[in-house]
């Protein structure tokens, strides 16, 4: 259950599934699953069941927020907005997977070159962290629905959290809590925004926000 390698490979698979799925509901489920894997991973970092209470608290807190609270919020927004699928993304789903493969390769390459503190749990950790961040950014860039963008930000945050695990000994609890709080507030606000966008424009396509820009004077 706490095998770091298995969890990391699981994360890679979830990332690819995110790139490939068009159903928004399953996207949310995958992000929730990713949150669960992350919580378990942070325990794996600290010797499984024998981890100190601080790690347990952090893991349970992050699972609670990422795997339960966020998905619940998002699913509610989804229900209100009455959309099911990501239609016409900027980058198609097959192409997305190919881009994902390139990004994974790049992450592995960068991971070998980054100077890192000794004693990292698994050599896969840093590449997976980078890959997750890139996937998140890619989702934000390549998808049209506001809700997918929120998911993208969440995935980026997951990547940052993963990266933080490599430095868990140095990074104090408060920093991780801070990041968690940031993400929570962001999702909260975006949930409201999606609701409002939907109410105003009858759709949640973020690319229509262009009408809000300054006009050249």
């Amino acid at each position: 259950m706490f095998e770091a390698h298995t969890l990391l490979v699981g994360l890679i698979l979830v990332d690819f599934m995110l790139l490939a799925s068009s159903r928004l509901g399953s996207c949310i489920r995958q992000v929730a699953f990713q949150g669960l894997l992350l919580g378990l991973l942070s325990l794996a970092e600290h010797a499984g069941w024998g981890a100190p209470w601080r790690s347990w608290a952090l893991a349970l807190g992050s699972i609670g927020v990422k795997a339960v609270l966020f998905p619940w919020l998002l699913r509610r927004a989804l229900r209100d907005a009455d959309v099911r699928r990501e239609m016409e993304p900027f980058v198609g789903f097959t192409a997305s997977i190919l881009v994902g493969v390139v990004m994974l390769g790049a992450s592995l390459w960068i991971g070998t070159r980054l100077p890192l503190p000794a004693g990292v749990v698994s050599p896969l950790l840093v590449p997976v962290a980078l890959f997750t961040m890139l996937v998140g950014l890619f989702l934000i860039v390549a998808r049209r629905k506001a809700i997918t963008q929120v998911l993208g930000y969440l995935v980026v945050e997951n990547g940052i959290y993963l990266f933080g695990l490599t430095l868990a000994e140095d990074a104090p609890l408060s920093v991780e809590l801070g990041v968690l709080l940031d993400a929570f507030v962001a999702v909260f606000i975006m949930g409201i925004m999606i609701y409002q966008i939907n109410r105003e424009f009858d759709h949640i396509d973020a690319d229509r926000l262009t009408s809000l820009r300054d006009e050249a004077s």
């Binding site: 900027f90 790049a106 960068i110 070159r113 980054l114 890139l134 950014l137 890619f138 934000i140 860039v141 390549a142 998808r143 049209r144 963008q149 973020a206 690319d207 926000l209 262009t210 009408s211 809000l212 820009r213 300054d214 050249a216």
Partner: peptide, 28 residues
Amino acid sequence: RWLQHGRVQLYVLYIALTLLVLLVWKVA
């Protein structure tokens, strides 16, 4: 001004590409 087109996705792309290029440049 054409850079400011109002597409959120492309703004994020600018940022992501900049960071990626800097990272690769630094690492390479």
